[in-house]
Design a protein around this nucleic acid. Structure first.
Length: 880
RNA sequence: GGGCGAAUAGCUCAGCGGUUCAGAGCGCCUGCCUUACACGCAGGAUGUCGGGGGUUCGAAUCCCUCUUCGCCCACCA
């Protein structure tokens, strides 16, 4: 019967919750280990990216919990201003309404209603994949307490002069109807056109030609500029042109920002719809008006209707472009259209092409915040895993730009700026009823804050800041932050800045940046592409452990994870197969343990067999290596190493070897120790099945949980290099027989006679001690341990020159055998030749490290011995 | 235009200066329902480690360069 995780996983999770082990032990009970979750959007549903990210956190947290740390993994959600508002507006649209029909208050109430009803979805989904968050401290970025922190931060920054009102061209999303920060307007390489358009000179019938990618903005032009060094246009200085299709005359001037080589070298200046043009206009025509020619939703018109031909008014900007180009062509004003690839910014929430738009917004001065944080980074106060993010991060921090934090939305933290009838303006921690200076009536700024202006406080606002709470005292600063590199600037960099600024120290020491989950074509998995993998489906089909296994063991540190959404079976088979293997190891081990076995400390060490000593020694190695890998964020390495131990060492060899000795208390003790150890080591990665099996081990106390059990420690007294080596020899002997059997097509049931001719004095004892193991696992009827009865057979020489002879009367063809052995001899001889060359190479002997040379010498000795035995064998068989 | 990363078996990846280092999982081939497991057991096959150059006693591993992919940043309209 195969393992079925479905009934087991939810029950196990429930037990963990009931035991309360996800909450940190009370103060004093262990050094804290803190991770704050990257709060998913309240409206989010779990996708495979979340799964990867959170499983990584869960592995770290479970590992540290077992190591005795007081783990605080703080969960929560983000109110996600734009995204959430969009969801509700879509709902309203389906009802034929807009938010303006409801009005602000009713709209916000409706969003709250939605959030209260569905906001826990993603957190519940995290539970199904085993996340061991401290649910007692779940936070939401719009909670009252959290809002208080946000407001406090705003007021403090205001008082420090770091918040200001800026009049400039910002990124505007005509669909979301709000301003965006630079980070929220994503670059997309786009195939566009460069339109060469004639602008008629005012005082003659001549034209000048201007190249632009956005002809529809021409109605907002306030002039043309060319580079002062551009002799082609020198005579144009001071002249005026008319905007095509209009009577509007605009001046021509020079500005050094114009590149002579681009387009025609003449640039149209549209200051209200291009940040670059805005800068030029301020230099060249500081007193000119800067007409906005589009409405907020991206149609031609608005305040400057008068500048736009009637038939274009009200048209969407892209339709207007099409129509305008046709008109220009008809009028003979279009010289040519060149294909032109350039980068277009799109809204990160709705993918609409962003419209640069002149407006008034609140900004945070970032340089003063960034500088100390960058300096701290360079001093090594915090770091990134993988380290290669350094350049990206430093580059962004060095070139940091002010942050537009106002959003023209209703869902979010209302900006706490108040203006009175007499023009006094201030930021306030409480809502004032009248102006403190003049008593006049006050109005609050209508906008809300950028969502990230609340999430950048997550590592301390969640613990009660600005109050000096015990939680804040205990859990700040945190340790590791695990997140996707996509939000390095949005979130991570800003948390570092707020952490240093408001708490005076780093919010975490290490930032682990996971890779991105992609499909087989290396495209990012996304809803819109329909190439995603639904973790819930995977859990349903194969269990959370299988999902976790594939995500953890299948991806190296910070590397992208490529999964096949069209073949879940193959994608998640490794995890499912492994869980099944563990399950069956469990079935076997548990069947031997009707009652509590003796511990390995209770058995007489002298009764341990070679196999026992070997597996105990291997166990120490896996503890050492897994612990090291996990401490080093090498989760994949740790997972795979434990897999190897469980499957290839414990199951394939030890369990097989121990079968006849199941009555032996020593065998039971060793088996129990190894199985228990395996479960402990694997608990962080596959917590459900390991917990389930661990519960079944005899002697378990009530309420004792693996998830809260101790991480295994290396026991040096059990390390046994000699047993490693000797049992290695036994394994090789068995493998040689099996290999010969397969080669000569001897059916598995046919028992064979074999002889082992050990090399060296103490070697015979090794084989003799495990004689029974060899006989059984190699399917022998008799095993001789001497040089005597060799007869007709197949031969293999291994390791230090010990040899195996399998009697194959009538099956072995001498020629075939000669061929086999000759091939083997030649292979060895070739290796020896190259090794010999190296060892006689003076520069190698002189320059290579001594231990390397010594190792090579030893190797040479062993190979030579092996070769000599082979040579003797060939001779005795009469091979040529 | 800058920066970063990847290119290793049919597929997804590990290895990142010492040569029993050419690996794992999945897939493939040959036997096996051997009483824990066919989601398994045993035995196999498969790679000029993207191309070229260099450094070194020694390179899949370091440097340069080219090619191909991916990502990030950027005010060529």
């Amino acid at each position: 019967m195969a393992y079925d995780p479905r009934p087991i996983e939810p029950a196990i999770y429930k037990r963990w919750l009931e035991a309360g082990i996800f909450q940190p032990t009370p103060a004093g009970g262990g050094e804290p280990y803190v991770i704050v979750i990257p709060p998913p959007n309240v409206t989010a549903e779990l996708h495979v990216g979340h799964a990867l990210n959170n499983v990584v956190q869960d592995v770290l947290v479970r590992f540290e919990r077992m190591r005795g740390r007081a783990v605080e993994w703080l969960p929560g959600t983000d109110h996600a201003g734009i995204a959430t508002q969009n969801v509700i507006e879509k709902q309203l649209a389906a009802e034929g309404k807009t938010r303006f029909d409801l009005g602000r208050e009713a709209f916000v109430a409706r969003v709250w209603q939605f959030v209260r009803a569905t906001g826990n979805t993603i957190l519940e989904q995290l539970k199904t994949i085993g996340c061991s968050c401290d649910w007692s401290r779940t936070r939401f970025t719009l909670d009252d307490a959290y809002s208080r922190s946000v407001r406090e931060v705003f007021v403090r920054l205001w008082d420090e002069g770091l918040i200001y009102r800026g009049h400039r061209v910002i990124h505007w999303c005509p669909h979301c109807l709000t301003a965006l920060s630079d980070e929220e307007a994503e670059h997309h390489e786009t195939q566009g056109n460069l339109y060469h358009i004639r602008y008629p000179l005012e005082d003659s019938s001549a034209f000048v030609t201007v190249a632009t990618t956005r002809p529809e903005t021409m109605f907002g032009d306030i002039g043309l500029v060319f580079n002062p060094k551009d002799s082609r246009y020198a005579q144009l200085t001071g002249k005026r042109v008319r905007i095509p299709l209009t009577e509007i005359a605009i001046p021509i001037a020079t500005d050094a920002a114009v590149e002579q080589g681009f387009g025609t070298g003449l640039l149209k200046v549209t200051p209200a719809h291009d940040a670059n043009d805005f800068d030029i206009a301020r230099r060249v025509w500081p007193n000119s008006e800067m007409p906005l020619i589009m409405t907020e939703d991206g149609r031609m018109g608005g305040r400057a209707d008068g500048r736009i031909p009637t038939d274009l008014q009200g048209l969407d900007r892209f339709e207007a472009r099409k129509k305008l180009v046709t008109q220009l062509e008809t009028e003979g004003l279009l010289v040519k259209v060149e294909q032109h690839n350039h980068s277009v910014r799109r809204c990160y929430r709705c993918d609409t092409v962003v419209e640069p738009r002149l407006s008034d917004q609140w900004f945070v001065k970032m340089k003063p915040l960034a500088e100390p944080v960058l300096a701290a980074y360079r001093k090594g106060e915090y770091g990134f895993v993988p380290e290669r993010w350094r350049a990206t991060y430093e580059n962004w921090m060095e070139g940091i730009r002010d942050w537009n934090i106002s959003r023209q939305l209703w869902w979010g933290h209302r900006i706490p700026v108040f203006t009175c009838a007499n023009g006094h303006q201030w930021a306030d921690r409480k809502d004032p009823t009248s102006c403190p200076k003049c008593g006049a009536t006050v109005e609050q700024d209508p906008d809300v804050l950028d969502t990230w202006f609340s999430s950048w406080l997550w590592p301390f606002a969640t613990f009660g800041w600005p109050d000096k709470t015990p939680d804040l005292e205990r859990f700040y600063p945190g340790h590791t932050l695990v997140t996707a590199p996509e939000i390095l600037f949005f979130w991570v960099a800003r948390m570092l800045m707020s952490g240093y600024h408001f708490m005076g120290q780093r919010p975490f020491r290490m930032v682990y940046l996971t890779g991105t989950v992609r499909d087989m074509k290396h495209r990012k998995m996304s809803k819109s592409l329909g190439n995603g993998i639904d973790p819930r489906e995977v859990v349903k089909l194969y269990g959370a452990d299988a999902l976790r296994w594939t995500l953890i063991a299948g991806s190296s540190i910070g590397a992208d994870v490529i999964l096949d959404p069209n073949d879940l079976e193959t994608t998640f088979a490794p995890g499912r197969n492994f869980a099944n293997k563990l399950w069956n190891i469990g079935q076997f081990v548990l069947a031997q343990l009707s009652q509590r076995a003796a511990t390995i400390d209770e058995v007489d060490r002298r009764t341990l067999t070679l196999a026992d000593r070997w597996i105990l020694s291997r166990a120490q190695a896996v503890i050492r290596e897994a612990t090291h890998s996990l401490s080093d964020f090498r989760l994949d390495e740790a997972a795979k190493r434990c897999f190897e131990f469980a499957w290839n060492e414990l199951a394939d060899w030890y369990i097989e070897a121990v079968k006849p000795r199941l009555d032996d208390p020593a065998a039971k003790a060793v088996l129990t120790y190894c199985f228990d150890l395996t479960l402990r080591l694997l608990q962080p990665v596959v917590p459900f099945i390991t917990e389930e099996l661990w519960q079944k081990l005899p002697g378990r106390k009530a309420n004792e949980l693996l998830a809260a059990a101790a991480w295994p420690a290396v026991r040096p007294e059990l390390e046994d290099p000699r047993a490693d080596q000797e049992f290695g020899r036994v394994k090789t002997a068995i493998e040689q027989v099996r290999s010969i059997r397969a080669e000569y097509r001897v059916p598995p049931k046919t028992k064979l006679k074999a002889t082992i001719v050990p090399r060296g004095n103490d070697k015979a004892a090794t084989f003799d001690g495990e004689r029974d193991t060899i006989v059984r696992l190699a399917q022998l009827e008799a095993l001789a341990l001497n040089g005597g009865t060799q007869g007709v057979g197949a031969h293999a020489v291994f390791g230090d020159g010990s040899e195996v002879v399998v009697a194959l009367e009538g099956l072995v063809d001498v020629n075939q055998e000669c061929q086999r052995l000759t091939d083997e001899y030649q292979r060895l001889d070739k290796q020896l030749t190259s090794l010999g060359a190296r060892l006689t190479n003076e520069s190698f002997v002189a320059r290579a490290p001594k231990d390397v040379v010594a190792k090579e010498r030893e190797k040479e000795k062993a190979w030579r011995e092996q070769r000599d035995v082979l040579a003797g064998k060939l001779k005795s068989l009469g091979c040529s």
